[in-house]
């Protein structure tokens, strides 16, 4: 992978560390929301050029539920929370069980809003984590949910990076709730400028921490 130009191994490790801490916090929030224990695996974190993302997801026409959020503040760009279509019902069923009086209507708006909320939680914890480490203030917009072919959800954001050479951080998380494993993807797509800013902040933060 041609990541050397923008990110060194140390910088990637630093990002992994931030994400791991964020994931831990997300599991606590999930657990409170679902009212049962939630186990997490250490997330797999990948760094990609924008143009390489669709091949990674293999089938560009696979249906996904995607929650899109805009990043504003010190870092600008797009955030995506993606759940394969077939797994979204598992999530909404858990919510149904955890909420007295709530009726699962099988994929209508109210069920799907659960996904928006999960996207919201993950975006929140990851951005707080980046803030704590890098002293960058990043906010995100109200989440928007669509269910469609994975590539069609992402291509606007890839185009937004203007050249497709911008770096994307892909976080693949697995949450285990009771016996169900829920695989989710979270994408952080900074603009080219913001990606540089993030790298500079990481370098500054590392210097403070390790003195080199």
């Amino acid at each position: 992978m041609k990541d050397k130009e923008l990110l060194t191994e140390e910088q990637m490790d630093y990002i992994r560390e931030m994400i791991n801490i964020g994931t831990g916090n997300a599991a606590v929030a999930f657990s409170q929301m679902l009212q049962r224990s939630v186990d997490i695996k250490i997330p797999e974190i990948y760094f990609f050029q924008a143009s390489q993302i669709p091949p990674f997801l293999k089938d560009p026409a696979q249906p996904f539920a995607g929650v899109s959020m805009q990043m504003v503040g010190d870092i600008r760009g797009r955030l995506f929370f993606l759940v394969p279509e077939e797994q979204k019902n598992i999530l909404t069923e858990f919510i149904e069980k955890a909420t007295p009086g709530y009726e699962n209507k099988g994929g209508v708006d109210i069920d799907l809003s659960v996904l928006e909320e999960l996207g919201n939680i993950l975006a929140g914890v990851f951005l707080v984590s980046i803030h704590d480490f890098c002293k960058l203030n990043i906010y995100h917009s109200v989440p928007e949910l669509r269910t469609d072919m994975i590539q069609s959800l992402l291509d606007e954001s890839i185009a937004d990076t203007a050249d497709g050479f911008s770096r994307i951080i892909l976080i693949e998380s697995e949450f285990a709730v009771v016996r169900e494993n829920i695989r989710t993807f979270f994408l952080i797509i900074p603009t080219m400028e913001s990606a540089k800013k993030l790298v500079n902040s990481i370098n500054d933060a590392r210097k403070q921490m390790y003195g080199n």
């Binding site: 089938d59 291509d155 606007e156 497709g164």
Partner: peptide
């Protein structure tokens, strides 16, 4: 034909593009 790719074919060829959003 993936994102940002192109292809040509002779009859009776079939060319496919999947997952077009804003593309």
């Amino acid at each position: 034909v993936g994102i940002g790719e192109g292809a040509v074919a002779k009859s009776p060829g079939i060319i496919v593009a999947e997952g077009l959003g804003s593309c």
